[in-house]
Amino acid sequence: MTTPLRPTLPQEPEALSPLHVRDLTVVYREKPALWDVDLEIPAGQLCAIVGPNGAGKSTLIKAVLGLVPTASGQVRFFGQSLAQARKRIGYVPQRGSVDWDFPTSVLDVVMMGLYGKLGWFKRPGPREREAALRCLEQVSLLEYAHRQISQLSGGQQQRVFLARALAQDADLYFMDEPFAGVDAVTEEAILRVLHELKGHGKTVVIVHHDLETVRDYFDHLTLLNVQVIASGPIDETFTPENLKRTYGGRMRWGEGEKAKETPEARPQPPS
């Protein structure tokens, strides 16, 4: 069932869920970016966070990871605080967040994912190289290992970030719009990796930009517009009413679904 705005009892013991958020509020110059967000992410699933521009989707990930200050809220990862659970969390930021002209190679970037494990004062060695190369293979970028990163296309850059996070071998991954503006090969590669992760019992939380593909790609959906509009299994949450409440009535094709009650019915793309 879709989560009401004030959830009662969570379905699973919250001590174990990969991500448990309560009352998260982020304010930016007196304007709320996130307001009273409650969220429970189930383990081992691919979970989407979807909403209009400015809804606070990226802010949610950043707030949860401690990258932006919060006005209030409690966040637990597998029952632990961020500091305790850091080693189990992987992050794939937006491509636009770095300068790709930085003098470094693809392999070097992926090895950065291992810096947490290496600790202070140790240099990455052949073992780290091997692990990084394997991650590059996973995203089909092995031949590009020694390219300077500005020589890559947008989709390839996205895959480099993905490989870097994979190198961490985390249990919970956060990804910020990984499918935005990528080519078909990259899209396939990301999906393949996501299913491999799910197969290994990992949990993935993804800010997703494309309503057309949400139902195909994900198991769990959270509709966000500064507040959580709805959150739950994809088929129960991805409904015309919820979409309308999230996007403020601007969704044309959602209205055509009012007549169809069967859960399998796919929304038709706008003609």
Binding site: K62, L65, G66, L67, A83, R86, K87, I89, Y91, P93, S97, V98, D99, F102, T104, V109, M112, G113, Y115, G116, L118, W120, F121, R123, P124, R164, Q168
Partner: peptide, 22 residues
């Protein structure tokens, strides 16, 4: 020399560095 890899990551992607716990 001691902090080379940390400075490298810090210069390239401070947000990711933060997420690693640096």
């Amino acid at each position: 020399g001691l902090f080379y890899k940390e400075f490298k990551l810090l210069s390239f992607d401070p947000a990711y560095a933060h997420s690693l716990g640096l």
